[in-house]
């Protein structure tokens, strides 16, 4: 039986038909409410997600992960009464147990936002290059947002309704990860970071953030 009845999992989805079914099936026992925002996938992602038991919202055309996330947030705010929403990646790199821990912590410590961080403990095995790229992204994000985070571009976050109302992402593509931190910071609501384990499977490595992508992120951040 789902235990988090007032929580919605928001999963941006783009061409992940191979794994998304498993990811949703794995999360459903813990989080009974899952919304997948299919960002104009060209494969059967949306159908797979729906068959696995998620509510699916379809973008008619591909807009980018930031746009998908915002659509998911809008859905939770306008069409559900959820108290918490959890942003969760569709490629299986996040752990459901981490997400559950983070929601629990948000409840217990009355936090409006809990950011997942893969650098608070040693569970996550990231290569040197990836580490450098991510740390650079963290540095840039911290400079522009004023928050002191240890991880950026981590898709696992718990956001309480009042904080989610302060989010209006305008960066459709990857730079939204810094933008959402900035906007959540501006709400001045209490936040924390929570150690999470990001699992780099061969699948996620194949489509993860390359060095090129981080160049794109920096450019998008500079020329808004």
């Amino acid at each position: 039986m789902p235990t988090h009845d007032d929580t919605w999992l928001v999963v941006p989805l783009y061409n992940e038909a191979r794994v998304v079914g498993e990811v949703i099936a794995g999360a459903l026992p813990t989080f009974g409410h899952i919304v997948c925002v299919d960002d104009g996938s060209t494969d059967s992602s949306a159908a797979v997600a729906e068959a696995a038991g998620a509510t699916v919202i379809r973008h008619a055309t591909n807009l980018g992960q930031g746009a998908a996330l915002q659509t998911g947030i809008d859905f939770v705010l306008t069409q559900t009464g959820a108290r918490y929403l959890v942003t969760f990646d569709a490629d299986g790199q996040h752990q459901v147990s981490d997400a559950a821990d983070m929601v629990r912590r948000a409840r217990e410590e009355d936090l409006a936002v809990v950011f997942g961080s893969r650098f608070l403990d040693n569970r996550t095995k990231a290569g040197l290059l990836k580490r450098i790229v991510l740390k650079t992204a963290v540095w840039v994000t911290n400079q522009s947002t004023g928050l002191r985070l240890t991880d950026a571009h981590n898709g696992l976050r718990v956001i309480r309704r009042d904080a989610a109302e302060g989010v209006q992402l305008r960066q459709d593509r990857m730079a939204h990860a810094s933008e959402i931190v900035l906007q959540l910071g501006r709400t001045r609501l209490p936040w924390a970071e929570h150690p999470v384990h990001v699992l780099y499977t061969d699948y996620s490595k194949g489509k993860g953030q390359s060095l090129w992508n981080s160049v794109n992120i920096l450019v998008e951040l500079m020329f808004k």
Binding site: T55, I57, R58, H59, A60, A67, Q70
Partner: peptide, 15 residues
């Protein structure tokens, strides 16, 4: 931005 707004509105209306 306009395309994003439009697509989002359609998607949310549809669901």
């Amino acid at each position: 931005r306009r395309i994003t707004e439009l697509t989002r509105t359609i998607a949310l209306t549809q669901v």
